[in-house]
C-alpha cells in the first residue's frame, strides 16, 4: 500500500482529452501519482493507454485538460524539456543508440546534469575531467544495478532484448528522475527476464522511486504496482489497488466480456 505523504501529488492528470479527428482516444481521464507510488496503466488493445502515456511523456499535447508535474503545469511542455524536470521514460520498442557502447548509452541519459559544450570538452579543465569521470562512475553504478556492468564496453548491438530493456531503464535512471515512466517493459521478454525485471522494479520501488507502468501483462502489473488505472475505450473505468481493481465488474467486463462479468460476480 502507498504511504500517504505530505504535499501534493507528483503527477496529476485533470480531465485530459485527446481527440484524433472524430475519434476520442482519451476521454476525460484524471488520475494522480503520489511520491513513491508505483502506478500501473492497463486496458485492452485500443483502450487509450499508449495515447495517455504519450500525453504524460509529452509526445503530443492533449486536446484539452491539464497535466501537472511536481506542482508545475507541463501540459504543453515539449518532450525534451521533461527530462531536466525529472521525468524519464523508456520505450516499448527499445530505442538505444546503435554504434555506441553500453556505457555510453547510459551516459547519454545524464545529459541534463552534465553539459557538453564543445570548448570545455576540448580544453578539458580539471572541473570537466572530474565531471567526465563522475559521469562514467555513475553510469557504471547504474549498469551494476541492472546487472550489466560486465558488458559496459560492448557495442549495444551485441545485447539481447531483455538486456536492452535493462540498459534503457539504466539510461532513464541516469538523469536522476523523480518519476520513471516505463512503456511496456515486459513486452517480448521471456519468463526469466520478466522475473528479473520485476525484481529490479521492486528494488527501485523500495528505494522510493515513483513509477508509471504501462503494461499488457496483467500478472506483471498486479504484482508490481501499488495502484492500477484501468482504461477501456478511452475512458478510465477503475482506479485502485490491484485487489480492488480485479474485483471491479467493469474491469472484468472489459477484459472478458459482459456476460462473463455477470457470471463471475
Amino acid at each position: 500500500m502507498t504511504v500517504e505523504r505530505n504535499s501534493g501529488p507528483l503527477l496529476r492528470l485533470e480531465n485530459v482529452v485527446q481527440k484524433f479527428g472524430g475519434l476520442v482516444a482519451v476521454n476525460n481521464v484524471s488520475f494522480e501519482i503520489r511520491k513513491g507510488e508505483v502506478k500501473g496503466l492497463i486496458g485492452p488493445n485500443g483502450a487509450g493507454k499508449s495515447t495517455t502515456f504519450d500525453l504524460v511523456t509529452g509526445v503530443r499535447p492533449p486536446t484539452s485538460g491539464e497535466i501537472h508535474f511536481n506542482g508545475i503545469r507541463v501540459t504543453r511542455q515539449p518532450a525534451h524539456t521533461r527530462s531536466p524536470m525529472g521525468m524519464a521514460r523508456t520505450f516499448q520498442i527499445v530505442r538505444l543508440f546503435r554504434g555506441l557502447s553500453v556505457l555510453e548509452n547510459v551516459q547519454m541519459g545524464m545529459h541534463p546534469a552534465f553539459p557538453d559544450g564543445l570548448l570545455p570538452s576540448i580544453l578539458r579543465s580539471a572541473e570537466r575531467r572530474r565531471q567526465e569521470a563522475e559521469s562514467r562512475k555513475r553510469a557504471m553504478k547504474l549498469l551494476d544495478f541492472v546487472g550489466l556492468a560486465d558488458r559496459a564496453g560492448e557495442r549495444i548491438e551485441t545485447l539481447t532484448l531483455g538486456q536492452l530493456r535493462l540498459v534503457d531503464i539504466a539510461r532513464a535512471l541516469a538523469s536522476g528522475p523523480d518519476l520513471l515512466m516505463l512503456d511496456e517493459p515486459a513486452a517480448g521478454l521471456n519468463d526469466a527476464e520478466t522475473r528479473n525485471l520485476a525484481e529490479m522494479l521492486a528494488l527501485l520501488k523500495k528505494r522510493g522511486m515513483s513509477m508509471l507502468l504501462v503494461e499488457h501483462d496483467i500478472d506483471f502489473i498486479m504484482s508490481a504496482c501499488d495502484t492500477v488505472v484501468v482504461m477501456d475505450h478511452g475512458t478510465k473505468i477503475a482506479d485502485g489497488t490491484p485487489a480492488e481493481v480485479s474485483r471491479n465488474r467493469e474491469v472484468i467486463a472489459a477484459y472478458i466480456g459482459r456476460r462473463a462479468a455477470d457470471v463471475t460476480v
Binding site: 518532450a79 525534451h80 527530462s83 531536466p84 521514460r89 520505450f91 530505442r95 538505444l96 543508440f97 546503435r98 554504434g99 555506441l100 555510453e104 551516459q107 547519454m108 541519459g109 545529459h111 541534463p112 552534465f114 557538453d116 559544450g117 564543445l118 570538452s121 576540448i122 567526465e132 559521469s135 539510461r171 538523469s175
Partner: peptide, 29 residues
C-alpha cells in the same frame, strides 16, 4: 577522432546521428 570519441560533446554528436528524436528526449538539440 578526438572530438567524436573522446569528448562528451562527440558522444552527443554520434548519438544525434543515430537517433535525433531520442537524443532530443535526452535534452540534446
Amino acid at each position: 577522432w578526438f572530438i567524436l570519441y573522446r569528448t562528451r560533446f562527440g558522444l552527443s554528436v554520434r548519438a544525434t546521428g543515430v537517433d535525433p528524436k531520442v537524443a532530443l528526449l535526452m535534452g540534446i538539440r
